[in-house]
Structure formats: C-alpha cells, structure tokens
C-alpha cells in the first residue's frame, strides 16, 4: 500500500492516508531530516497544490537500500498541470527521474522550471549527488543533452555514438569535408563529454524526413535514447542545468 498526501498551499494540509504513511514519514526523517509534510511543502513550493503518492522500498532493516518512490501531481490555480515520477536512493546518493508529463495548461508557462527546481531542493536535502534518467522518445535525447546530462558510462557513450554515426551518413553530403571529419572525430572519442560537443554542433542540415534545415546536433540526437546522468558536483554541467531550470541567470 502506498502513502498518500494531498497538500493545498492555500488551505493547508487537505488529506493523507495509506498504511505505509508512517514508513514513508520515517524515511523522510531519516534521509532528509524533515518529515513527509515538510518534503511535500518543498515539492509544492510556488504551486497551489500537490498530490503525492509515495512508497519506501527496500528498507534498511531488511538489508535493502531504502529507496523512496514518489509520484507527484501538481496543481496550479486548481488545474492539474503535470505529474512527475522519481526515485530517491540516498544510499547510492542517486535520484532517478522516471518520467514527467505536462498538461496543455502548462505549455508556454515555464511551469516545468519550478517543478525541477523544487525537485532539486528535495534531492539536496537527501544528499543526492547525481540525477539519472533515460533520455529518449522523440525529444529527450537532444533536450537532456542541452540540460547538462551526459551518458552514464563510457560504454553507454560508445553505444550511442555508433547509433549517431549511422544517422550521420545520410546527411554527410550536406557538410564540408572538414565538418564531416570533425563530427566523425568527435563521435570516435571515448569521452562521454563528446555527446555535448555533438549536441552543440550548429551546422544546418536537412533531415531526410523533414523539409526545414535544423542544426546537425539536434538532428543527430532527436529520437536517440541513452542512459544519462547529471553529476551535481560537475561544475560546468551543473551550471548548464541551473541556467536551464532558471535558478541562475
């Protein structure tokens, strides 16, 4: 059974329940030094209300790692604007961003920025050192690269670089020999940072499926899927992320 908590920033705590509520509360007190209500307040900051469903799994008593699975529905002015699902694993100092969806009401409002800011604050309280995710589907492969995420391991970069090399072939004729050689050279690098170097390439190319030219970096990474991470101790990556989510100018 999952613990539930509905928090309304105007009217205060609305409701809570679930047989595992004490376990989730204990988890929050142990790992963040704050109770579930305070954690919920952090996640609800700058929004009108949140509905939180959480479950502590693999308790430390049973020899597990003591993770907290959270699904959070966010409301603004009484209208649901998005749902975010994540997992906190303080033993590994890792948080995994599982998925996030937004409603049309959140489009063009920049509401995802405070969502990610609140999440970062909650992670900081749990002494999380890195955020992981699977960058994929249509846009994720490119978007998360521009948010400072890099492949989790050199092996993961090697895998994705092979995919990108194959995707480069149909548009090579649109590049100068120098641009093609440099792109191939970056794709052949063993350093996962090469993913960012690829994402930054601004040379316009026309994709075989699209009529309008787009930057080569975007063309290569859109539609790709890779396991990414953001090391919170990696200054340059963190700077990119903080700027993107609006915590730094």
């Amino acid at each position: 059974m999952t613990a539930f908590l509905a928090l309304n920033n105007r009217g205060g705590l609305k409701s809570f329940g679930g047989s595992t509520l004490p376990a989730v509360n204990d988890w929050c007190l142990t790992h963040s030094g704050r109770d579930l209500l305070q954690v919920a307040r952090t996640l609800a900051s700058r929004f009108s209300a949140v509905n939180i469903a959480a479950r502590a799994v693999g308790s430390r008593d049973s020899g597990g790692s003591g993770q907290l699975l959270v699904r959070e529905q966010i409301f603004q002015a009484g209208v649901p604007i998005g749902t975010i699902a994540f997992r906190l694993d303080p033993a590994q100092q890792r948080a995994h961003l599982s998925w996030t969806v937004l409603t049309p009401a959140a489009r063009g409002t920049g509401a995802f920025k405070p969502m990610l800011q609140n999440l970062l604050l909650a992670m900081r309280d749990c002494r999380i050192a890195r955020i992981t995710l699977v960058a994929g589907l249509t846009h994720g492969g490119y978007v998360w690269a521009t948010y400072g995420f890099l492949p989790q391991t050199p092996a993961e970069w090697t895998r994705i670089s092979g995919v990108l090399r194959a995707k480069l072939v149909p548009v090579t004729a649109q590049l100068t020999p120098e641009q093609a050689a440099l792109t191939t050279q970056l794709l052949g690098s063993a350093d996962p940072l090469a993913l960012r170097a690829i994402a930054a390439i601004a040379v316009p190319v026309t994709a075989p499926t699209g009529p309008t030219p787009i930057p080569l970096g975007r063309y290569l990474l859109l539609g790709s899927e890779w396991k990414g991470q953001l090391e919170l101790s990696d200054g340059p990556s963190m700077l990119i992320y903080l700027r993107r989510i609006g915590l730094m100018p």
């Binding site: 998005g82 749902t83 975010i84 998925w99 996030t100 969806v101 937004l102 409603t103 049309p104 959140a106 489009r107 995802f112 969502m115 589907l137 249509t138 846009h139 994720g140 978007v143 998360w144 948010y147």
Partner: peptide
C-alpha cells in the same frame, strides 16, 4: 498529456 521534454 505531453512529455515534459517536448515542452522544454
């Protein structure tokens, strides 16, 4: 619902 990455 739309993926957050699309909005980003």
């Amino acid at each position: 619902l739309v993926r957050m990455e699309e909005v980003m």
